[in-house]
């Protein structure tokens, strides 16, 4: 991820993931009764001291950029206004323009398709592979490790490799299809297949993340459950349907939601392969925002920021579902 994804994993690649711990330590007892309150006060100040760099960092490099972004979206910024700092305040006009633009519906539908199709395939392929590798055959550990490679490669590397593989004239994919008498497909340059192409590449990028997390989830299912089922004469499929899948449900939920959040953010794969084109054929909300701000010679930051803020809202909705789900999992 990143997650940059991040699993960009999605942005599967920039998967930062979100560690779950809210550490709850027992209250510190003073060493001696008399010094306990002074000790506690000293600890409290030490805590602030140790956390201070992080707090300053978050204020300067998270809060400030986000604030600037909101400000951008409420003004009419041009490159010149950037330097002179006299952009006109326009209220929500940028948001109204964005929502009424032709690109909006297209980008929303594309985002939905990109995310949904990517997740369905990443998850099911990842789960199938996790169950397969769980059987611990010879070399399974090594092979499982090699599956991580696509996830670790820089996104530009994977995306440009896929671009060349899907090249209309000289790509290996068309060459193989030709052997099966399929005519030339203009994967990246036809409006019918551009979105499909970036989805295929993104599924490939996300499989390792799903595999690793689901595999670790499988490891937490006690072996004796399976042994008992075997004694009762359950078949492999029955074991999967009645044991593996239900017991894996919390982990599955978290995997899918993290995938959602990271896939929503994806810019690099799509931008490098198709720049969102042809036309708007593979333009998602994230790509639209990127293109308005940085993709053309004429940067248009205000609408870009408005699209970006809408994207944050969508990401946060899934984010809160994720946090609730994780809390429930910790309680159980």
């Amino acid at each position: 991820m990143n997650t940059t994804q991040t699993m960009s994993v999605g942005d599967a690649s920039h998967l930062g993931g979100a560690a779950a711990a809210t550490p709850t330590a027992p209250p510190e007892r003073g060493l001696r009764a008399g010094t306990s309150s002074r000790q506690a006060r000293r600890t409290r100040w030490a805590a602030v001291g140790f956390a201070a760099p992080l707090l300053a960092y978050l204020a300067a490099f998270y809060a400030l950029p986000l604030y600037r972004n909101i400000e951008l979206s409420l003004h009419d910024y041009t490159t010149r206004a950037f330097v002179q700092g006299n952009a006109e305040f326009v209220g929500l006009a940028n948001y109204v323009d964005v929502v009424h633009s032709d690109t909006f519906t297209k980008a929303l539908v594309n985002t939905g398709l990109f995310v949904a199709v990517s997740i369905v395939f990443q998850y099911s392929i990842g789960l199938a592979l996790a169950v397969f590798f769980r059987q611990n055959f010879r070399l399974s550990g090594l092979l499982r490790g090699m599956f991580l490679i696509p996830w670790l490669l820089p996104m530009i590397v994977s995306a440009s490799t896929w671009s060349w593989m899907l090249n209309s004239d000289s790509g290996i994919v068309n060459s193989v299809l030709q052997a099966f008498h399929v005519g030339q497909i203009n994967w990246l340059t036809s409006p019918d297949t551009a979105l499909l192409s970036v989805i295929i590449a993104n599924i490939w990028l996300g499989i390792p993340f799903n595999l690793v997390i689901l595999y670790s989830g499988l490891q937490n299912i006690p072996v004796d459950v399976y042994e008992a089922a075997s004694l009762d004469g359950a078949s492999g499929w029955q074991k999967f349907r009645l044991i593996t899948f239900p017991l894996l449900r919390p982990v599955s939920g978290i995997t899918i939601l993290l995938g959602l959040i990271y896939t929503l953010k994806v810019v690099d794969v799509i931008w490098i392969m198709t720049t969102g084109g042809p036309g708007d054929a593979s333009t998602t909300l994230a790509i639209w925002s990127y293109r308005e701000a940085f993709g053309t010679g004429q940067p248009d930051f205000s609408p870009a920021a408005a699209v970006g803020n809408l994207l944050i809202l969508i990401a946060l909705v899934f984010g809160f579902v994720y946090l609730r789900m994780q809390r429930r999992m910790e309680e159980s």
Binding site: P27, A46, A47, L66, R68, L264, A304
Partner: peptide, 30 residues
């Protein structure tokens, strides 16, 4: 060290990871 507001800070960090990179890029650019 039982930092006060640890729960809130954890929450902020979790949410921070969900912010799309393109948005951070615009903020940093400006």
């Amino acid at each position: 060290l039982h930092l006060r507001g640890a729960g809130t800070l954890n929450f902020i960090l979790l949410v921070a990871q969900m912010i799309p990179g393109v948005i951070m890029a615009m903020g940093f650019y400006s």
